[in-house]
């Protein structure tokens, strides 16, 4: 029976992966604009570039654009080009409740995108939890982190969690911890960081940044994550992340507020 089991498993359930060569028809370059800001006092950057061919090893920066940051309070400033498609603001900070707009003018085409800094939702707490052997399938015995927050009543709250351990920010394809209130509006929510990658040792310093996002920015991160982690959208057809830039530019502009907490694993 044991032999049968082995034969069976090997023959039937051995799916196989391999790297293949594919024919790619490259399209014309498309403009990509990325900007991020929060409530800290800081110099913020907007990056402007284009897509490159599939096999290209180069970047393709746009260094001749005019980039402006304005808000709905009547303030605006032109950003300063600093090189490699990067444009910088003066030292400034974002204000909760204010809508910020980035306007990029490149060769006469204007691209615009806005984002409102929402009221930050505070973390309730972050805690470590010990998971004994064989209690949670696929999770080895060890110490892990759990994040608690309470969603304010009313639909439309959107979050992203940034996990760092010992000052290393987790930022791979698998590290988009996105959360919304579609199914748990007004309730306390727990986000658990289980699995090998998140196993904690005594003395580790863990830091959690808890971002409160504008809805369309969340939507961008969500669709971005679908595409880069699964290779396809929920409808089975790959598509570009949902950008809200006008004139078809790719990318996003995220103005957010956040809460932060950290602990040293005992």
């Amino acid at each position: 029976m044991r032999l049968l089991y082995i034969v069976f498993t090997v023959l039937v359930f051995t799916s196989c992966e391999k790297i293949i060569d594919v024919d790619i028809a490259d399209s014309d370059p498309q403009i990509v604009i990325e900007g991020i800001m929060n409530t800290d006092t800081n110099i913020y950057s907007v990056y402007v570039k284009t897509t490159v061919p599939y096999n290209s090893t180069d970047n393709s920066y746009i260094n001749n654009a005019q980039v402006e940051l304005s808000d709905n309070q009547g303030n605006s400033q032109m950003l300063t080009f600093v090189g490699d498609g990067e444009y910088q603001t003066t030292n400034m900070n974002g204000v909760v409740g204010v809508n910020y707009t980035v306007t990029v003018n490149h060769e006469g085409v204007v691209y615009q995108n806005g984002s409102t800094i929402r009221n930050p939702v505070p973390l309730d707490s972050i805690r470590t939890v010990f998971i004994p052997e064989n209690t949670v399938p696929g999770v080895d015995e060890g110490t892990y982190l759990q994040v608690f927050y309470t969603d304010p009543a009313g639909l439309g709250d959107r979050y992203r969690i940034i996990f760092s351990r010992n000052d290393t920010v987790f930022s791979t394809v698998d590290d988009y911890f996105l959360s919304n209130d579609v199914f748990d509006d007004g309730l306390q929510d727990i986000v658990s960081f289980f699995g090998d990658r998140f196993k904690l040792n005594s003395g580790d310093k863990v830091k959690i940044e808890f971002w409160t996002l504008d809805e369309h920015v969340y939507d961008y991160y969500q669709t971005l994550e679908n595409i880069i982690s699964e290779g396809f959208a929920p409808t089975g057809v790959p598509d570009n992340p949902n950008s809200t830039w006008t004139n078809g530019a790719l990318g996003f502009f995220n103005a957010y507020s956040y809460d932060v907490d950290s602990l040293i694993v005992p």
Partner: peptide, 27 residues
């Protein structure tokens, strides 16, 4: 199927750029 027609980097990630729907072929 729809395969990339280019690529770009955004939010620290390498992202495929998709252009025409179902313009490529599976093996």
């Amino acid at each position: 199927v729809t395969w990339p027609a280019g690529k770009y980097e955004v939010d620290g990630q390498l992202v495929p750029y998709y252009a025409s729907r179902n313009a490529s072929r599976m093996p």
